[in-house]
Simulated assay, not measured.
Amino acid sequence: MTLVKFNPEKKNSALLPGFNDIFESVIGDTFFSDRRISSVPAVNISESAEAYQIELAAPGLKKEDFRVSIEKDMLNISAQKSEESSSEGKIYNRREYSYSAFTRSFTLPESADADKIQASYTQGVLKLSLPKKEEAKAVSRQIEIR
């Protein structure tokens, strides 16, 4: 018995058999895949009773590369890094510059206290703590059962 994989993502496979396979093999080639890597770092967002936490994975950067700003109710996190190595007197067959930049924007919830946001960068992770306003913190109390 032969097992055939079913991929519902492939459209028009009945109309143009093999076209998607050829297209995927060209796009999946290492020449293109190195350039298709997403330049936007992954983000984890969590919430506790006291604050919101944002963790942004950005290894290889320095804290000086980051810009964190607030405009109205938007939290903007951006970074820019460029590296140029200059070696005089050498003849290059191939020389590549390293340049990367990204911007992530998040809408701040009304319960976040924008004046008390703190940020730190350690071991490739930018961590932001957005404390909640006092009136927004969850008040818990024990209810007596009669």
Rank of each mutant, 00 (worst) to 15 (best):
M1H: 10
L3D: 08
L3H: 12
V4A: 10
K5M: 12
P8V: 03
P8N: 05
K10G: 10
K11S: 09
K11N: 04
L15E: 13
L16V: 03
G18F: 00
F19N: 03
D21G: 06
I22P: 03
E24P: 02
I27Q: 01
I27C: 04
T30F: 14
T30M: 09
F31K: 04
F32M: 05
S33Y: 08
D34M: 11
R36I: 07
I37Y: 08
S39R: 12
V40Q: 02
V40S: 02
A42G: 15
A42W: 13
V43I: 13
V43S: 02
N44C: 14
I45D: 10
I45Y: 08
I45V: 09
S46N: 14
S48K: 07
A49M: 09
A49N: 15
A49Y: 14
E50Q: 15
A51Q: 15
Q53Y: 15
I54Y: 06
L56I: 07
A57H: 01
A58M: 01
A58W: 00
P59K: 00
P59D: 03
G60P: 00
K62A: 04
E64Y: 07
D65R: 01
R67I: 11
V68Q: 00
S69H: 01
I70N: 02
K72I: 14
M74I: 13
M74V: 10
L75M: 02
L75C: 02
I77L: 04
S78R: 02
A79N: 00
A79M: 03
A79Y: 00
A79K: 01
A79P: 09
Q80S: 15
Q80E: 15
E83D: 07
E84M: 11
S87R: 12
E88C: 07
E88Y: 15
E88T: 07
E88D: 14
G89N: 06
G89I: 14
N93D: 12
N93L: 15
R95I: 11
S100M: 12
S100K: 12
S100N: 11
F102I: 08
R104K: 12
R104I: 13
R104W: 00
R104M: 08
S105D: 10
S105V: 06
F106S: 04
F106Y: 14
L108C: 01
E110D: 14
S111G: 08
A112C: 11
D115S: 13
D115E: 15
A119T: 13
Y121A: 02
Y121M: 01
Y121C: 02
L128F: 03
P131T: 11
P131F: 11
P131A: 08
K133P: 06
E134W: 09
E135H: 02
E135W: 12
K137Y: 05
K137M: 08
S140D: 06
I143K: 03
E144K: 10
E144F: 14
E144H: 10
